[in-house]
Design a protein around this nucleic acid. Sequence first.
DNA 1: CTGACGTACAACCACGCGGTTGTACGTTAG
DNA 2: CTAACGTACAACCGCGTGGTTGTACGTCAG
Lengths: 108, 108
Amino acid sequence: MDRVFHGLADATRRDIVEQVLSREQSVSTLARRYDMSFAAVQKHVAVLERARLVTKQRRGREQIVRGNPDVLRRAVHLLDAYERIWRDRARAIDDILAEDIDTERTAQ
Amino acid sequence: MDRVFHGLADATRRDIVEQVLSREQSVSTLARRYDMSFAAVQKHVAVLERARLVTKQRRGREQIVRGNPDVLRRAVHLLDAYERIWRDRARAIDDILAEDIDTERTAQ
DNA sequence: CTGACGTACAACCACGCGGTTGTACGTTAG
DNA sequence: CTAACGTACAACCGCGTGGTTGTACGTCAG
């Protein structure tokens, strides 16, 4: 997960993920989109590959990059779990408040 | 967003987020949970604070840390958008395949 | 008042990141 | 065959990160 979030923690890399999710493309095709060297883009792709956010596959002399929605989903589920913790806590607080009001009313 | 994902790209920080989402606590209370110096935990909290994943509020001599579910939700939405790109593409491919089969059938 | 506690911050270190340039190698086009 | 293309990789640089220790300061308890 460290690698996944680190992969997403860069605007260029998030854009690459978006690109290859909608259409698989070679590293050099991707590189042309960004105002930086080919090697830099290559490194970004490598970071995404280590995080399994993206896979590479040779096709002739080109290396085709595709997005991997599974890892993306795992990240969403983790964050959803955090949100659930929050909601559960909020519900518990509401319950206590409701109980307090009840107690108050009974005490009167 | 860079800061948000960078904030989440560390196991200790993700644990801190989880902790303070379920129960707000002081920095030193948090620090006791981890096998590192107080200053290190302080820095992790600072990273989370810069990403707005967490807020701090003074209470006497303590600094109370709370989770911020809003930023978490924005991250989830972004990743959901990526997934949607994928699903849309998959649907488009399915449509084309269906059309091909149709064409094939008609041609026979 | 005094001491312990919680915090803040600076200095330092090793390491990794994001970027560059340069070089080398396999593959395809002409 | 040769040239151009796509890729891989190493070396380098500046900077930020994750960790440490040390010092200082406000606040609370006894």
